[in-house]
Structure formats: structure tokens, C-alpha cells
Simulated assay, not measured.
Amino acid sequence: MKLLSQHQAHKAMDGDGVNIRRVADFNKLGFDPFLMIDEIKSDDKSDFIGGFPPHPHRGIETFTYILKGGFEHRDQLGNVKAIRAGDVQWMSTGSGVIHSEMPLADTDAGLHGFQIWLNMPAKDKMRPARYQDSGELVLPEAVASGVYFKALAGRWQFANQVLVSPLAQLAGRARIADVTLLENAKLTLNLGESSGESQFLGVYIYSGSLKQHLGFDSQYESYQAGQLLVLDSHELLQLDAEEQGAGLLLLSGQAINESVVHMGPFVMNTQAEIRQAVEDYQMGRFGQISD
């Protein structure tokens, strides 16, 4: 693999006192079309029990994936859904969504999950909101040579198989996969990005570690949980786990290449659009969640 940059997740707090680790880029757009990765991982209820009470969004897509525990999602569109371990949820907020995400009552053994923000192109930012979750749908998986591959969003090729997630409409043609590498396992993927288009390819490590051989002697570079590696999508993707194995998210997408103005839950293209989003929310134009 060819490493372009690496980024460390930092401790942050959001919602009603929820402790998270966050990697974000709303300025340099080095992750385009992705904006942010939030990871919640704790066995201590006090770290997440407050959840995320009702709040608005405009101009982004949120992609939620749960490994352990779960949340109940509610929004003004009438969607009420428990998102549990193994589930994914996609919300294209468009012109406006108000939603809440509260820990499930039976989340006693801890919580581990992710919320990923994607930018939306200007032409779509004011379209009606869309919602989809995995629900009863099957997220395709495959296993080969100590590597477990799960297609969360988009179309992937792994171990001579084509894996297509039912969630396939993400902005920027984004794809997301969950990959587990056992002890010293290796993953090799040819993503076929030969079109010359600007593509993003990222690896977020959430458990264990990866290593990269430096090409001389037996020396190698080690990458740990909580790091996002930005890689060259035109190079063959080769990932080597260390002795403890590794769990990671693969992120791929087409850069949108548009200006971004960010304020809290709103991501638009101009300051005037941000001011309008704030006014629309304050005037109640986003609607409200029904009991």
C-alpha cells in the first residue's frame, strides 16, 4: 500500500455527554466525500447513557454501524428503529432531519459503534430526506485466508466474489466495509481505480494493529487502533495484521470537490445557506419527532 497520510482519532464529547473518538476534516477536505468518523467504544454506561437527544441536520448523510449494544433511532419522518449489533443505518438528511439516537434499554454489556458523516453535493443538499437501514436485509459477507469481509455499503470484490450491500445510494458513490484480520492475516484488494478520477481510500483501525514492511531487513511501521490511514487508491491495497489481528473499516468514495461551510449539525456550501439552515430550524420548519 502507498500511505498518503495518517490521522489520529481524538477524544471528544457530543450529544448529552457521550464520550467518543473522532477523526474529522471540514477544512482541507482530505477525506472527501467523507467528513467525519465518530467511534463510541465503552463498557461503562456513564460514557454513553445520555445518548443523542433530538437534534437537526442538513446537507449531510450519516451512516451508522453498530458492533456491540445498540441505539433506538427516531425522526420527524416517522422512522422508529432499534439499530443493534451488526446493523447499519443510512440517513440522507438533505433539506432537513430532526432525529434522536438513544441507547437501548438492554445495552448493559457496553456499546461499540460508529457514525460516519458524508458530504452531499450542492445539487442534492435541499432534496427531501431519505432513510434506509439493514433491517431484515442481508449484508453480504465472505471469509478467506483468515480475513472476514462484510460489505456495509456499496459494491466490493473480495476472494473472487462480488459483494453488494443493499445500501448502495451513498453520496460520492461511497463504499464502506468491515474487515477482520486474524493473527498475521493479510488482505490484498485490487480496487481497480484506474480511471484517473479523484478517489478517496481510507482504513480506520478500530482494534488490533496493522504493519507495513519498509523494504529492508525486517523493519516495519506499525499502525494502531484509533488511526485513519489515507491510501493511494491507484495502488494495490495490501494490509498485514500483527499478532493480535486487526479490525478495521474500509472507506472508499468519489471526491465531490465542492466548498464546505460547517456549523454544528449543518454542512452547506455558503455562509448564507448556513444562516438559512439555522433560521429554518429555529422557526420550526424541520418539523418535530412525534411521541
Results as ranks from 00 to 15, higher is better:
Ile289Thr: 08
Ile37His: 01
Gly202Gln: 03
Lys150Phe: 04
Gly245Asn: 08
Ala185Pro: 10
Ala109Glu: 14
Glu243Asp: 10
Thr107Pro: 01
Leu139His: 00
Leu77Val: 03
Tyr148Ala: 13
Lys123Val: 11
Arg21Gly: 00
Lys150Arg: 15
Gly50Met: 09
Lys125Gln: 11
Gly215Phe: 06
Phe71Tyr: 12
Ala225His: 01
Asp124Val: 07
Val88Ala: 13
Gly110Lys: 03
Gln76Asp: 04
Val230Phe: 04
Asp280Pro: 01
Gly172Val: 04
Trp90Met: 08
Leu137Gln: 14
Val162Pro: 02
Gln219Ala: 13
Leu237Gln: 13
Ser95Cys: 12
Phe31Gln: 03
Ala85Ser: 12
Ser233Trp: 00
Thr64Phe: 07
Leu251Arg: 01
Gln157Leu: 06
Glu72Asn: 15
Glu141Ala: 09
Phe34Asp: 05
Glu273Ile: 06
Met120Gly: 06
Ser145Leu: 07
Ser92Leu: 04
Phe158Leu: 04
Gly15Asn: 08
Ile274Leu: 13
Trp156Phe: 12
Tyr148Thr: 11
Arg22Thr: 09
Glu258Gly: 10
Lys211Leu: 12
Gln199Ser: 12
Tyr223Cys: 01
Gly196Val: 14
Arg130Phe: 09
Ala153Val: 06
Val164Gly: 02
Tyr148Trp: 14
Ala151Asp: 07
His7Ser: 14
Ala171Pro: 11
Leu137Val: 02
Gly208Tyr: 07
Phe48Thr: 03
Thr270Ala: 07
Leu139Ser: 09
Ile205Pro: 02
Lys45Val: 06
Ile116Gln: 03
Met268Leu: 15
Glu141Lys: 15
Asn160Gln: 14
Met263Asp: 05
Lys125Asp: 05
Leu118Lys: 07
Asp25Gly: 06
His73Phe: 09
Ser252His: 09
Leu152Ala: 01
Gln6Asn: 13
Trp156Asp: 03
Gly69Trp: 02
Gln219Trp: 11
Asp124Arg: 08
Gly284Met: 09
His10Tyr: 10
Leu189Met: 12
Leu3Trp: 04
Asp178Cys: 05
Tyr204His: 08
Leu35Glu: 04
Ala122Cys: 07
Leu139Tyr: 06
Gly208Cys: 06
Gly86Ile: 04
Leu250Asp: 07
Val18Phe: 01
His7Thr: 13
Gln219Pro: 00
Ile98Asp: 01
Leu67Met: 12
Val97Ile: 15
Thr107Gln: 11
Gly135Cys: 02
Val179Pro: 03
Ala109His: 12
Pro103Leu: 01
Leu137Arg: 10
